[in-house]
Design a binder for these strands. Structure first.
Lengths: 203, 203, 203, 203
DNA sequence: TATGAATGAGAATTCATTCAT
DNA sequence: GATGAATGAATTCTCATTCAT
């Protein structure tokens, strides 16, 4: 408490420590969320597993909700980061375009499947219905572009509904296939079939 | 004890009261579940909203879990009751068959949409993943029959995956449409598009 | 409710029925008390096991406490009924007298050992410390007479303490032997040793 | 971190606080147990009387059972700590030996009589029948040694029963005398009489 | 800044007792 | 009288959050 002159590492990496701590906390939270669910993910257990004090956790997250929100946010970011916006030119064969969109979306779901499943399982009751939506935003934009660019749109009385159907089915199928049909995902069979589903529906 | 002329079934007061109480409890529970979620559906709040003593609730439901289970069970029964197994003859136009299957499934989800949504939101974390599955069983059986009866099957290398895709997409689309696109459901537009989706994919 | 003339058995054995009901209730209570303890002997369980309505139980016993009290009272009565006050003449060999006292007390504890054990286990916390005392009253009186009749008393500076010691030891030994050393009780070995203990101490 | 001159053990605040809290809780629990019994010793009342939050109680005792167990454990430890195993040589006058054993056992019961009484009153129904047994273990060992060392044993057909009788009577007499005959305990009269009881029985 | 002891509102559940039928 | 459905105070225990050190 008196004169500890040049003892402390100069230029204390406060930010670095903070970041590390946040990382540690989120890792612990993620593992518990995935393994035991949101109800058993108590803040005390998280801090314990993270090897830090519960007080420190509250230094970085004002409440449990914020912790979960950050978990979801991170997952979304990581996921979206893995996605390249699909671009195309109107004269490109539509099959190719669709296949690229589908492939992109499958990859998007493969980033951290465990977390994806856990969040899909736990978040609905937090009123975070838009979380999934946002993840779908990319494919939505791609499909939208496809619509607007191609003369297909004219064919449909209710293009909005068509888009809704495509989005929803592609999303649900991939989500469930990741959990239940891993081999089909890996083999490319899922990609083939989804491409066919969308293509045949659109054309 | 002998001739009581118009012996109206006397409505055994015991059973009648019991049933009424169970009904009251389940109604209260359902409303809270739908409006506020499973976490806020505490046994005390349910009894309070039902206008009965907490002890009475436990007279009929040994624990909270049993209450939720009965809610889910009821919903499943009511839902399945609304479903007529779709039958058809192989020479019938496939479009018709598919349309009937789709229509049936839409009706199945329209029984008590609020409860359907609430259960879909809350049950996953109770490990009741099979609940949705069971509800889908009917459409699954119909689609399976369609497969087996028609010479379509031969066309697919992986008929199992095709079936999975159809089931999942139809289910997810209807589920979400009920929530988000009520007008399309009512207008029949959803039925049209779904029929088209399945038809074009299968043929 | 109207005219059921000579249907009811004339001279309705109201009292008999009441008695039978009380008996049934006490039997059920006794069994549960012995087998599961006072905490698990809920009034509802008792009425259920007795095959009667809970309301009927409260017709005869104003509260749970009264039920336990009656159980204890009955046991005491049955026990004391099995005891013959030990009488003797001063010129009788003291060994014989002591043996008869001891034998009497052993028999006293053998009446309904299970209930005896159960009550000894459960009653202390109800503040019924005097229950055991009263049961000992008989041996106490016998010993007291022995003291007063024989010239032994003079020998002791504190005859009250001597009596206390005898009462307490005989009681405790028999009580515990009934539970733990059944064979010694039956073989008469306990009687022999207790007689010796008292005799050698007194003379 | 180097030379802090008179580094008084700094009294780790953590441990000190924890200990104090545990002590406070146990004190409150003990008082309620003694004064009102186990049934009225609710966890909330204990925490209230201890002047702490109920949550704090559960920080140190995982459940009510653990609290009672610790109370019993503490009492046993304190009691046993007060006892010096009685040793002797075979040629020592047996009266002396017996007197020392008796005296020892009396002291053993005098440690915290209120708690001793309360535990004896409440523990039986928790199935903790061995608690008293263990406390008696010391006198048992001493008596056993007396038996094995002296040629007395040969005299008895059933030495085991004799030992049982001695143990049970000495234990019961002391236990009850502490409650009912405090003056005799203090005056030494009890010690005298007990010595005489055992001596006359054994020789 | 990090800590973790302390908190207390609130959740699930039990059970002695009442009273309308 | 007999019944048993209904009651609700009371009990054990959890967990998000605070704050003194």
């Amino acid at each position: 408490m008196s004169q500890e002159p040049a003892v402390r590492p100069r230029k204390q990496p406060v930010q670095a420590r903070s970041r590390a701590m946040v990382e540690t906390i989120l890792d612990a939270a993620a593992r518990i969320l995935i393994e035991e669910g949101l109800d058993d993910m108590t803040t005390n257990r998280v801090s314990e597993r993270a090897g830090i004090g519960i007080g420190s956790l509250y230094q970085y997250f004002p409440n449990k909700q914020a912790l979960v929100a950050e978990l979801a946010h991170r997952h979304k970011q990581e996921t979206l980061a893995a996605v390249k916006e699909v671009t195309f030119t109107p004269d490109e064969p539509i099959q190719n375009i669709i296949r690229r969109i589908v492939r992109n979306h499958i990859r998007l779901h493969s980033v951290d499947p465990e977390m994806h499943i856990a969040l899909a399982r736990e978040l609905p009751r937090l009123g975070v219905m838009d979380w999934h939506e946002e993840l779908n935003h990319d494919i939505y934009k791609s499909l939208r572009k496809l619509f607007d660019a191609h003369p297909l749109t004219a064919k449909y009385a209710n293009p909005d509904l068509v888009l809704f159907i495509l989005r929803t089915s592609v999303e649900a199928i991939i989500h469930k296939a990741i959990i239940e049909r891993d081999s089909d995902v890996r083999s490319g069979a899922l990609e083939d079939e989804l491409t066919r589903l969308v293509s045949s529906y659109l054309v």
